[in-house]
């Protein structure tokens, strides 16, 4: 089991050549994140410099002070937007994980009639561009009478074909023998799901959680399409309107600052979950 002791204790010269490849590539991958952080602190003269520069020469907090000025002009308090976003995001991430992992478990390990067909349908749904269902979705939500409620934010985002696809692939890799053992010990499918499958696919769940978080946290569509009241809208929608209010040169600065603010929760979640994500299937139990 090499996978378990992934971090060798010592440092040997053999590793140098690998570092020679990896370190430059890593720096390359980190550039966009660096860019998001620095451009929020750039004065206007530097924001428009061409070619764009990654580092900031004279950092300033102007962008943030302008952002907070604009915030104070809005009729709904900032706290309300934050609360809306937090509630919606939490609900969507938790519910979509539960729903997709349950379905993934059923697809992968419970044999029942129609499972093949349903999974094919999900795979086809993967290919369909979400834009195309926007207006029909509005009609559904209108008919359900949940416009201007939190449900209008939560329900449409729960159907996440990619999440189900990834989770099913991971559950496929959980050895059947583990489940058989649990069954012999008298566990029903719900218990097997809760006690065997869920703990084993934690890495996949962490990945899906990050993807789901992405889909919800930055989503402005549910706010602009399914709500009409300002106090039911989310933080990301509010931030996008702020950038639009400050048109022209100042708008870019405000946009950069709001981008950073929206980005911070992302990176925090990533840091919290990353150790779980990265452990992939190192401990899938059997070989």
């Amino acid at each position: 089991m090499r996978a378990v002791n992934i971090n060798p204790k010592g440092f040997s010269r053999d590793q140098l050549k690998i570092y020679a490849y990896i370190v430059p590539l890593c720096l390359f991958m980190l550039l966009p994140i660096l860019y998001i952080f620095t451009s929020a602190f750039k004065p206007i003269s530097e924001l428009f410099a061409f070619p764009p520069r990654f580092l900031v020469a004279n950092p300033t907090l102007d962008n943030f002070s302008r952002l907070s000025q604009t915030t104070q002009q809005s009729t709904v308090s900032l706290g309300r937007y934050v609360f809306n976003s937090a509630l919606v995001t939490l609900a969507v991430v938790l519910l979509s994980i539960i729903i997709s992992s349950m379905a993934g478990y059923a697809f992968s390990k419970l044999r029942f009639r129609g499972s093949g067909l349903l999974f094919e349908i999900n795979t086809i749904a993967l290919m369909f561009v979400p834009v195309a269902v926007m207006i029909p979705r509005y009609l559904v939500i209108d008919r359900l009478g949940i416009i201007n409620s939190y449900l209008a934010h939560i329900l449409p985002l729960l159907s996440m074909p990619v999440g189900l696809f990834l989770l099913k692939q991971f559950i496929d890799q959980v050895p059947d023998e583990l489940m058989e053992a649990a069954k012999v010990d008298g566990a029903g499918p719900l218990r097997v799901y809760w006690k065997v499958v869920l703990p084993l696919i934690r890495p996949a769940i962490a990945t899906v959680a990050i993807l789901a978080f992405q889909a919800v946290w930055g989503n402005t569509e549910t706010s602009s399409m399914f709500t009409t009241k300002e106090n039911m809208r989310t933080l990301s929608f509010f931030m996008s309107t702020l950038a639009a209010q400050n048109t022209g040169v100042a708008g870019q600065g405000v946009a950069a600052a709001s981008m950073l603010i929206m980005f911070v929760p992302n990176i925090l979640l990533f840091i919290i979950l990353q150790s779980k994500v990265m452990n992939t299937m190192a401990y899938s139990g059997m070989k």
């Binding site: 997709s100 044999r111 029942f112 159907s159």
Partner: peptide, 9 residues
């Protein structure tokens, strides 16, 4: 059982 697990989805 399968269908029950699938139901929410």
């Amino acid at each position: 059982k399968g269908l029950l697990f699938m139901l929410p989805w």
